[in-house]
Simulated assay, not measured.
Amino acid sequence: MGGLVGLERTTVPLIGSHTFGLTKALTNLAAGALTARFRRKQLLVTGWLIGVPVPFALAWAPSWGWIVAANVLPGLNQGLTWSMTVNMKIDLVGPARRGPATGLNEAAGYTSVGATALISGCLATACGLRPVPELIGAVFVAAGLGLALVVRYTAAHVALELARHTEPLPGTGSTGLSAAFARTSWHDRSLRGASQAGLVNNLNDGLTRGVFPLLFTEHGLGIAAVGLIKGLYPILWCIGQIPTGHLADRIGRKPLVVTGMFVQAGGFVLALALLDRPLLAGVLSAVALGIGTALVHPALIASISDHAHPARRANALGTYRFWRDIGYAGGAVIAGLLADAFGLDATVITAAALTAASGLLAARWITERHRAA
């Protein structure tokens, strides 16, 4: 899954990427509702079947319009496949080991995003933008579809968890999409706290992708130095989710979420406070943002799973992932508007304030339900 995302990050224009992000966010939302009618494995296989034309469409699309349209397919593919792998892993490990399962899943996916972006960039340099870089996606699609066909169903694990779950469905008991969306987005305090933190966390990713290269080149750094800064952030974020996933099971979800948001806010502060030494400022801010994101990511997914009734979990996760992925596109838009109106420094200050406020809201709204090991 991560490989297919990384494929389009290097060689597809930004307008196509935004189409992909919006489609993925909406499909995340729909995927939870679809689990009421279809099994997780069926949706996983369907997602990979939708992805089959993607590398070929990107490789030989005759116009930019086709490329934009082609990015709808990977958005549908990722929304279904990534949502189902998260749900299936949570089904399999049960309540006691959600942190490590989600940490490993996210680390594997996002590490593959970065690695494939690097490989496709090298291929584009050597062989041109099309069709060679895109065709490595055929390998990812074949592997993903093959694995999806042999993976086992997880319905029995869900049934066992439901049988052991002593709490009745709260409220009206509705498991529909609209009710789950309202509950996860606002009515349930803990789910609301996790959703807003996920939105702001990904908003930071979209904002830094647009603002940091401009900020640091404006203060004298070259392309290589900016590339180092931009590379550190996702590397620490990806690899860091493996230990932080385990940590979420040991000390709980809420401490990691709140700490991670404040560490990210500190990263933005460092970016401005040390600008007289721009390389140091960039490296330290990237480290803080990467560590902060690694703390937050698996803990938020585990927290959503803790607070959602097993019968509603797929819908709750779909709603959370919708808000989280909308944050990425929103970050790019907000960064552009603020930078145009008030300048780069003001944009970074706003990001720091917004992230700190999100941490305070998470501290106020999220309650800890996981029993620390």
Rank of each mutant, 00 (worst) to 15 (best):
G176C: 09
A314S: 09
V348N: 05
G94P: 13
H18W: 12
R369A: 11
V333K: 06
G206S: 09
I301F: 15
A286D: 02
Q78I: 13
I304H: 14
V151D: 11
G3E: 01
A36E: 12
G128L: 05
L280Q: 06
L360W: 07
Y328A: 05
V68C: 03
R40E: 11
L7Y: 09
R9F: 13
A126R: 04
L73F: 12
G176M: 10
G343E: 05
W365E: 12
G171V: 08
A180Y: 03
W48S: 02
G240A: 00
R324Y: 12
A143Y: 01
T347I: 02
P53N: 05
T10D: 10
R189A: 14
V113M: 02
G193C: 04
P13M: 11
L338P: 08
W48H: 08
A341F: 12
V258F: 07
W323V: 08
N105A: 10
W60R: 08
N77E: 11
A339L: 14
G292R: 04
P131M: 01
A351E: 00
L232Y: 10
A59R: 00
R164A: 14
G47Q: 03
I304N: 06
I223Y: 11
A117N: 00
I334F: 12
T116F: 01
I223T: 14
T46P: 00
